[in-house]
Design a protein around this nucleic acid. Structure first.
Lengths: 325, 325
DNA sequence: TTGAAAGCGCTAACAT
DNA sequence: ATGTTAGCGCTTTCAA
């Protein structure tokens, strides 16, 4: 489906409204420090609407030196209903400020984030998971004015998740914990931070660090890990994510074990399937709705040149109690 | 985190390499019909790398009249793991052709699709669900050269999924089928098309249409639906997606029923948790790798001005046999 | 209150 | 084989 039509330009609108291009720009951008009589403004606005005029983004950002595109980087993982609500909040709040949100989902595939950032000429890049210092630098070089999702704070957040899991397990009487690592990227930054958090919570209570084992998304292999944990008398298990938690549940089922009586298990993510796992999965979710609005504000502040506002937390982990722990 | 650094321009590279801006452009874009001696090419490439030069997208697309941004429009629904694999494939294939993929997730919130299309200056917009004629028009006016995701074909594909589910169930001896609708958007286009496909497969075998019931992602509510199906002697169940299928499994578990003996259930999507559901879920997956590449090819063809190539199928449903059906 | 004019950084004829 | 030059469509001084 190709199209050869020449697009409508601001000059067309100017002609149609009988004013200069400059005036069109002033009106359509609501340029401050310019007083445009209501009459002229109306003429311009109407001409623009009549012609279905849309400024060409590339020309706009080339001239203005900044685009109104915000790029959201998401891990290449499933997007839960929850997360998509977060995105909606973020997009809506951003749109209210004249900014457009697009998402980069294919982490690791396709172009690198900095490349993509340059390709869409994003003026801000945000993420729910921390960028390392190097990436942050690259993003700035790629033209991003503000980069959010970086630094100590994000690290602390990641740990908070593991801590929350362990604390719940300890709080319900488990004194020997295990940690179920994903078998795919067990040494990834995110994974290690969460494990760290869980270990810290154990240490605070004078318990041993969790026994960490990788578990594949396969019932038989998961059962083997369960055997090992059983042998070590592990009574509570933090899983890296809900899928891994469910794999453990499947492994336990194969051995005739039940959660939470034999081993309590808790996941992360609150995926759509979590409430219907057998048994329903206790997990750590996130308050995305609030986070979305806050993040939008932070972007706007950053773009406005304000000092970086401090965020309490970007992802606000939240314990969701169901049956498995 | 603001940044005030002036970005490196192609003029900087030209100076560094001791050539003109034009030569830089030729080298970096591999412009056909230009013969650049290896020596010069090397000098330019090295200068660019040394300076970490990235062309400014807005200037590039303004001058060239086309951007290399492809916009993927997704329904504002949860993105399953398998869908995100598709996105990865698409992004990778597109990247191979020098195109960048970004995604619009916040359908209904934030800006409209045509607005967003203009905002990122996308030269192609693709979607897994069909656009109506009006939207297609608007997208073209917003500057999209090619718009994919429209027409009869998408509809047929959607139906194929339901058909595959039903055929498998019928083929294993079930003569009375049910269909588990998601309780959130049961009348959505996608949902209805899949149901249609299942119904068609039944009709072909002289069976009644599947008994369609909405099932929430809650074990107790799912159990109620299971009761109803049991009452009607439904022996095989197609679920709209894997999450819904797992809800049914949870409901059955609550009633002491087992899949596939009491009721066989089959999902759609092959989410990460599918192999570790109890029992492991039989489902319909997709050959995303292939689909991603094909869609990418279609975009490239369209952009290249070729006639619209016909695609066999956008999503290539594929039966994945596990234990539940 | 409005308009003329000078770029923004890049590509692509057209020269050389 | 490489450089000169003229825009792409918009914003933004500066002048009127």
């Amino acid at each position: 489906m190709r199209r050869a039509s020449k697009r409508i330009t601001s000059a067309d609108v100017a002609r149609e409204a009988g004013v200069s291009q400059t005036t069109v720009s002033f009106v359509l951008n609501d340029t401050r420090g310019q007083t445009i009589p209501e009459e002229t403004r109306r003429r311009v606005v109407e001409a623009a609407k009549r012609l279905d005029y849309r400024p060409r983004a590339s020309a706009r950002s080339l001239a203005a030196g900044r685009s109104d595109v915000v790029l959201l980087a998401l891990p290449g993982l499933p997007i839960s209903a929850n997360l998509s609500r977060f995105i909606e909040q973020l997009a809506a709040a951003l749109a209210g400020r004249g900014l457009s949100l697009v998402t980069h989902l294919a982490e690791g595939h396709g172009r690198s984030l900095p490349d993509l950032c340059a390709a869409v000429d994003a003026s801000a890049v945000v993420s729910l998971i921390p960028f390392d210092e190097e990436t942050t630098e690259a993003l700035h070089r790629a033209g991003a004015e503000v980069v959010l999702g970086t630094g100590e704070q994000a690290r602390a957040e990641l740990q908070e998740i593991g801590r929350l899991q362990a604390q719940h397990l300890i709080g319900t009487g488990r004194d020997r914990l295990g940690y179920a690592l994903p078998d795919q990227h067990p040494s990834q930054f995110r994974v290690q931070q969460r494990l760290h958090g869980a270990a810290a919570a154990c240490a605070e209570q004078g318990l041993d660090a969790p026994v960490a084992l990788a578990v594949a998304l396969d019932p038989a292999q998961a059962a083997a890990a369960v055997d090992e944990w059983t042998r070590l008398r592990v009574a509570g298990l933090c899983a890296y994510n809900d899928e891994t938690a469910m794999a453990v549940l499947a492994g336990m089922h194969l051995r005739g074990l039940r959660a939470p009586d034999d081993i309590a298990v808790i996941g992360v993510g609150d995926i759509a399937a979590a409430p219907v796992s057998i048994p329903p999965l206790t997990t750590v979710g996130f308050d995305y709705e609030l986070t979305g609005r806050e993040l939008a504000q932070a972007v706007v502040d950053g773009l406005g040149g304000a000092q970086q506002t401090t965020h309490d937390s970007l992802s606000r982990p939240l314990l969701i109690r169901r049956a498995s722990a």
